[in-house]
Design a protein around this nucleic acid. Structure first.
Lengths: 136, 136
DNA sequence: CTGTGCGGGTTATAGTATTACATAACGCCT
DNA sequence: AGGCGTTATGTAATACTATAACCCGCACAG
């Protein structure tokens, strides 16, 4: 049960990822927990949080802090750093590449002596669909 | 009680800002609430959250999502957009300019039809002081 | 004055996340 | 195969963060 990269993709973890993939967009930990427990897994928060931590840690999912939620990664397997565009009306989450942004950020922070390890870049606004349907 | 910009800097709000300024770094809403209530203001969460929302809304403080905390703005009065460098050991928060980053982000997101309104850019890592004291 | 809006106080509750501990499964080594 | 250390899963309990809803009072405009 260990894949090429040394990952242990156990049943809870796999199911958690599937749940995230089924939904396009972000899901809260407790929504995920409901589904997991409906599928026979544990009923307590740590069950969901642990699986989610694992997925995030291994680049299979992202945590969207502004929504206190999680979303499946759109480009798993590729080393990449993402930024998220979050619609304030429909809560849709789009993932865009942020490698350049991150490089800039690393440069700026290095200038202050800070050793940057992880970034989280999120933006709030209106998605194309909501711009259509919501007039000025 | 209305300043040049039309801001109502009431006693709770002023005190909240002072509390943030006294501490270099970020403070949770409940820590702030404790101090406010010790100073004779209300004892309930909305007291703190409302004051903080006001300060954030008016560019006098920032919300640090990764820490679920708030910090006084280092450059109040100036229109600017900030990014935050958060030390994972001591939780110190440094504010750096992010106007360029934001411009890049706006450009990228516009390409997808997204109308970007607000950004939150945070990075986790080690501050200079903790790099010193924590060897590899 | 007096009505209106904003600020601030309260109670109550919703929502998010973690600690701590016990048990079970796995991977590895002999 | 058997035993052992490590990792994963499950549970209970609780901590932490945030918001909703309602009331009152004051400042200001009319």
């Amino acid at each position: 049960m260990i894949d090429a990269r040394g990952l242990r993709m156990t049943p809870v973890r796999r199911r958690t990822l599937e749940i995230l993939l089924e939904r396009h967009g972000a899901l809260g930990a407790y929504e995920i927990l409901e589904r997991l427990s409906a599928d026979g897994f544990g009923h307590q928060p740590p069950v969901a949080y642990r699986a989610l931590d694992f997925l995030v840690e291994n680049g299979l999912a992202h945590r969207i802090r502004r929504l206190n939620a999680f979303a499946a990664c759109q480009h798993p397997g590729q080393e990449h750093h993402a930024a998220f565009l979050i619609c304030r009306l429909c809560n849709a989450v789009a993932e865009i590449a942020a490698d350049k942004l991150r490089a800039t950020l690393i440069a700026s922070s290095a200038a202050t002596g800070f050793d940057l390890e992880r970034t989280s870049i999120e933006a709030l606004g209106l998605c194309p669909a909501c711009i259509e349907s919501a007039p000025a």
